[in-house]
Amino acid sequence: MLTLLKRLLYVPVVILLLVTATFFLIRLAPGGPFSAERDLPEEVEKALNAKFRLDQPMLVQYGAMLKDAVRGDFGPSMKHRERTVRQIIAQHLPPSMILGALAIILALWIGITVGTVSALKANSALDYFGMGVTVLGISLPAFVFGPLLQLLFAMRLDWLPVAGYGAPLQLVLPALTLSLPFAARFARLMRAGMLEVLSEDFIRTARSKGLSERIVVLRHAFRGALIPVVSFLGPAIAAITTGSLVVEKIFNIPGLGREFVESALNRDYTLVMGTTIVYGSFIVICNMLSDLSYALLDPRVRR
């Protein structure tokens, strides 16, 4: 309980550090939010700088930004000036979360199944095949796998839509693309975890008691074997929900991943802060929950 409280206390500290670093780094990067191929008239640039407080000293801007952060309102985006950062996050976070949740479920389901089967049939043809596919899954980037899925399921077979967002079927291909590398990692972790647990003494005891293999695996080995998977779950959730940029682009999903990356490329200072805080908090919380969940699975960590 005490660890939990201590860890919770870290969250705002980590976020503050993150926000501070982001604020100064994005301003150190060359180019500003209003530079464009067509030069802005000087007067317009001045007016925009004043509107977004960019004409004030850096520390004053920093203070104002902290105040905005506490209020949770960064005002309008510097690129899409008629939309506020809050609106953009409210509009684009849900699609990212839905897609990310689906991808995680898929990745766990595929990963745990393939990993368990591979471990139980270790060093068989089935195992080699399964692990071979996972190597492919880890090394095949989304910008190759996504279009391949599109070609097969949307163009050739005509089973699923090419792209878009709104209908449930439109989520299938992007979720699959997004889940693949994670499913592959989960499978390898699950296989390794299962093999390790199966060689432990308490499993031997269980077997010698005459329990069926099914019960040995599901009731005794499974929980322990899951630990490596769970330890990777936190980073995986964070990576899936923040790393959806390519998938969002290929399948035209209105997610936050693209807003996040493009805001940095556009030097959209206000949107950068908003998206960084959202993703930053998310990652910190995911990692914390993942740490805490060890305790539930492995009695040795519970102290």
């Binding site: 279009p147 599109q150 070609l151 949307a154 163009m155 090419v162 792209a163 682009k249 290929i250 399948f251 035209n252």
Partner: peptide
């Protein structure tokens, strides 16, 4: 008006007459 910046996806949609 669709905002597809992935022109390959746009091309597939064209081929599907969407």
């Amino acid at each position: 008006a669709l905002p597809l910046d992935d022109l390959n996806t746009a091309y597939q949609l064209f081929l599907k007459k969407e």
